[in-house]
Nucleic acid binder design. Structure first.
Lengths: 337, 337
DNA sequence: TTGAAAGCGCTAACAC
DNA sequence: GTGTTAGCGCTTTCAA
C-alpha cells in the first residue's frame, strides 16, 4: 500500500508547521491562522488526498469514538434488527460500532469483551449469555461504561439495563387470547435459566391460572440444541391434548413450530391458534396472518446508545429502563365464529 | 473510566525496563530474559489486569489486523449471512472485521470507504452499489487491498472479485423447470443496472428462448423502492396470462411475491410453480417446499478473506474467482402428475 | 499568527 | 540479559 499522507507531509509541502495544519484541518483556527494560509492548507490536503489517521488520534485523545456491541446470537432476527438501530443511532452521534456475536457462549463472550477493550472502545452494549455474571462484575469494577440490553441479571447489581417487561408481555398475551375465546393455551419455550425468559414464562403461567383457571398451565420447555428434533413430537402432543392455541416465546421457536404445523397441514387458527414473540418479515408467507408481541426495537436501540453515551460522558448513576410491548393482533389468534 | 494498566506500570512495579516487559508479554524473550523475571512479569501483568492497547500497537506497527466489510444492504439475508462467514474466516486468521451497510447508496458507500480508511483497516471486502466505479478506481490507484464480492463492474479493470456465474445459474433454472414440464416461465426481478443482475436476467432469457422456444421471454422488472406496491399487480397479470412458473431473482422479491400468492390463495405448484434465488430459513413456513438456487456462501466468504489476505501480504496479481451454484429441487417446481 | 516540543502506549534497533 | 531510545501520527501547551 502506498504511503498515506500525514500532517507532516502537508506541512512540509507548504513550509509551515504541523501544528498549524492540525488546527486548520480540525477547524480550530478561528483567530489563530490567516485565512489565506488556512485555505492553502485545505487545498493542499485535498490535493494530497489527506485523511486523518484515526488510530493516532485515538491514541492521543484516549477516545476512539467506537462503541462495542456484543449480541448473544447474530442468527437471531431480534438481535440483528436491534443491531441496526444501535448502529444508526451511534452514527448519528458520530460513533462507530464494532460487533461481535457470542453465540450464547460465556467464554466467547468474555473473549469478545477483551477484544473490545483491547481496541479501546469507549463503551459497550451487550446482551450477555448466561454464566457471564463474573465478566459483568469485572466491567463494573473497572468502571468501563456498559449497558445491558434485553437480558437482565438480578444478581449483578447497580448496572445499566434496557429491557422490556417480559412478565407483562406474556400476561397480556393471555388476556388477548382469553378475550378472543381461547380456553386452553400452551406456551412453547426454551429451557433456560435466563431471567428474562423465566419472566416471560411466569407471566404466562400466572395469567393462565388467574384468567383461565388452569391449575397447571401448559408450558413446554425445549433444550435449544435439540429444538428442531424435539419440537415436532411436542407439537403433536399439544395437537392431541386439546390445546387450542400455542404461544411461541421466541422467533426461532415460532419458525420451527410453524413449520411443523405446515407439514402436518394444521389449519390456523381453526385447529390451532398462534401467538408469537417478535415480529418477522417471513410471517407473511404463512397461510394465516400471525399475531405477535412487538418489542420497541428502535426505542431500545435508541435508549441503549443514549444511556451509554451519558455514562461515557461522566454520568455516574445507574439507570434501568423497562419498556412496554404491545400485541399486533392478526388472524392467527382470532377464533372463527 | 479507571486508568488502564500500561507496560510502563508493570515495568515500574517491578523495577525493570518497559522493553523487557514488552518482550515477555509478546513471547519474544527466548534467550533474552531470565525465566524467573519472565514469570514475575507475567504474574504482575495478570495481577494488574493488563491487556495491550491495540491502538498503540497498530500505530506503531502500521497494521491494525482489522478488515473492513461494506455490504450493499444489511437487511438482505444474502449479505447478513455472508457477513457471518467472512467474520468467522477473518477471526480464524486473527483479524477483526468492522462492518458497514451502504444501503445501495453510492454516497454512503464512499463515506464508508473513508471511514474504514481512516481507521486504517488493512484491507476491505465490498459489495458495491451501482455508481461506485470512481471510488473503486480510487482504491485501486491508492493500492489499497480490496476485493469485490457478489457485484462485478466490467468497466473497473484489474481488480479482485469473488462471485458466482449468474448467467449459468439462471440458465440452469430454466433447464431444471423444462425437465419438470413447465412451459411458460416468467422471471420477476428488480430493474437495475447492476451487472450481476443483468447476467441473471440474460441467462433466463437465453435459456427460455433456446430451451422453450419463447420468442420474448417473460421478464417483469420492478423498481426496488416501489416493490411492495407494484408486485401484487404484476403477479396477478402473470396469473392471468398463462404463466406456469415464476422465478424470483432475489430473496427479497421472493418473499414479497410469495406473500401475494398466499394472499390470493394460489396453490403452488399446482396453479403456479416457483423457483427462488437464495436459501431462506423462512421458506419452511410456506405451504409448499421451495426450490431455490443455492450460492456457495461459505466458500465465497472464505475465498474473499483468502484473496484479501494474500493482497495484504504483498501479492500483486489480480484474481477473479467465479463459483458455481446449484439448484435445490423441492416441491414448488415439481408439476403434479 | 506561528512553531517547537512533549507525550499518548507500544516495538525494535541498538548499546551496554 | 537488560536498558535506552527513536518514532508511529496526532493534539495541545507554551513560548515566541
Amino acid at each position: 500500500m502506498r504511503k498515506k499522507t500525514s500532517l507532516k507531509d502537508i506541512a512540509d509541502a507548504l513550509g509551515v508547521s504541523i501544528a498549524i495544519v492540525s488546527y486548520v484541518l480540525n477547524n480550530k483556527h478561528e483567530g489563530r491562522v490567516s485565512e489565506y494560509k488556512a485555505n492553502q492548507i485545505k487545498e493542499m490536503a485535498k490535493k494530497m488526498n489527506y485523511f486523518p489517521n484515526q488510530i493516532a488520534k485515538s491514541l492521543r485523545k484516549d477516545k476512539t469514538y467506537t462503541l462495542g456491541l456484543i449480541i448473544a446470537d447474530i442468527s437471531n432476527l431480534f438481535y440483528s434488527n436491534i443491531a441496526r438501530y444501535i448502529e444508526d443511532e451511534s452514527k448519528r452521534h458520530n460513533y462507530n460500532v464494532i460487533f461481535g456475536s457470542a453465540d450464547e457462549n460465556a467464554d466467547k463472550f468474555k473473549e469478545l469483551v477483551h477484544v473490545m477493550l483491547s481496541r479501546q472502545v469507549d463503551g459497550i452494549i451487550l446482551a450477555a449469555p448466561k454464566g457471564t455474571e463474573a465478566t459483568l462484575n469485572y466491567l463494573r469494577e473497572q468502571h468501563i461504561p456498559f449497558v445491558l440490553i434485553d437480558r437482565h441479571f438480578p444478581e449483578v447489581v447497580n448496572i445499566n439495563t434496557i429491557g422490556i417487561n417480559n412478565y407483562q408481555a406474556s400476561y397480556s398475551v393471555v388476556e388477548h387470547i382469553t378475550e378472543n375465546g381461547f380456553k386452553k393455551p400452551a406456551m412453547v419455550t426454551l429451557s433456560t435459566d435466563l431471567y428474562h425468559m423465566k419472566e416471560r414464562t411466569l407471566g404466562f403461567k400466572h395469567a393462565s391460572t388467574e384468567l383461565l383457571g388452569m391449575q397447571s398451565p401448559e408450558v413446554v420447555e425445549i433444550e435449544e440444541d435439540i429444538l428442531s428434533d424435539e419440537i415436532e413430537g411436542q407439537m403433536l402432543n399439544l395437537l392431541k391434548n386439546g390445546t387450542d392455541l400455542i404461544y411461541f416465546s421466541t422467533n426461532k421457536i415460532a419458525m420451527e413450530g410453524l413449520a411443523v404445523l405446515v407439514e402436518h397441514n394444521v389449519k390456523v387458527p381453526k385447529k390451532m391458534g398462534i401467538v408469537c414473540f417478535d415480529k418477522a418479515d417471513a410471517y407473511k408467507i404463512f397461510h394465516t396472518s400471525i399475531t405477535y408481541v412487538e418489542q420497541p426495537l428502535r426505542q431500545m436501540g435508541h435508549e441503549a446508545v443514549e444511556v451509554l453515551l451519558s455514562l461515557i460522558n461522566g454520568n455516574q448513576f445507574a439507570k434501568s429502563i423497562v419498556l412496554g410491548t404491545h400485541i399486533v393482533a392478526q388472524d392467527s389468534s382470532k377464533l372463527p365464529k
